[in-house]
């Protein structure tokens, strides 16, 4: 009787183990799907909340760039472009806040901006011919962390820069 009880117990344990195993696998699969969904959603939402900036045309005398403004937008953004010292700024798509001709530093203080893609361009008297002759910066205040953050802009490669001309 004891042997039969032990045998029944072993069968019972094996059955329970099998059922538990299959349920565990199902639960793991569901958890992975939920985790993947949450991660994808978070990455999409995060993309909407982050700044980015890039040159569209970093060469020649007509320089173009674009800045992605997140939602909600900050109260103010400062865009700075470093061009060849001594160059004149002949045209600016947005009102220029300040320009130090001696250093070749142009600044725009942008307020009341909307979220989305902000396109800017300038025409300069001294064309940019090499990658290192131009770079930019976008400065903004991160309201969530109450800190000032910046994004650095630079042409990617010489080849890609030429493609933009």
């Amino acid at each position: 009787m004891i042997i039969r009880w032990l045998s029944n117990k072993e069968d019972y344990m094996n059955t329970m183990t099998g059922k538990l195993k299959s349920r565990f696998e199902a639960a793991t699969g569901i958890a992975l799907i939920i985790l993947l969904t949450v991660s994808l959603t978070a990455s999409v939402l995060a993309a909407d909340r982050s700044f980015s900036a890039r040159y569209v045309k970093p060469r020649g005398d007509h320089i173009k760039w674009e800045v992605r403004i997140p939602s909600p937008p900050p109260a103010a953004v400062i865009v700075t472009q470093y061009i060849l010292p001594g160059s004149e700024i002949l045209y600016s798509s947005h009102p220029l806040s300040s320009y130090n001709k001696k250093k070749g530093v142009a600044k725009w203080l942008l307020t009341s901006i909307s979220p989305g893609l902000l396109k800017m361009d300038i025409k300069i008297s001294k064309p940019i011919r090499k990658k290192g002759e131009i770079h930019g910066e976008v400065l903004f205040k991160d309201a969530s962390q109450n800190t000032t953050s910046s994004i650095f802009m630079a042409p990617k490669t010489v080849k890609k820069a030429l493609e933009g001309c």
Binding site: P74, A75, A76, I78, L109, T111, L139, K141, A143, T148
Partner: peptide, 13 residues
Amino acid sequence: DDEEILMVYSSVE
């Protein structure tokens, strides 16, 4: 400077 004016504009309204 830039950081100081951004601080001012954080309370612009």
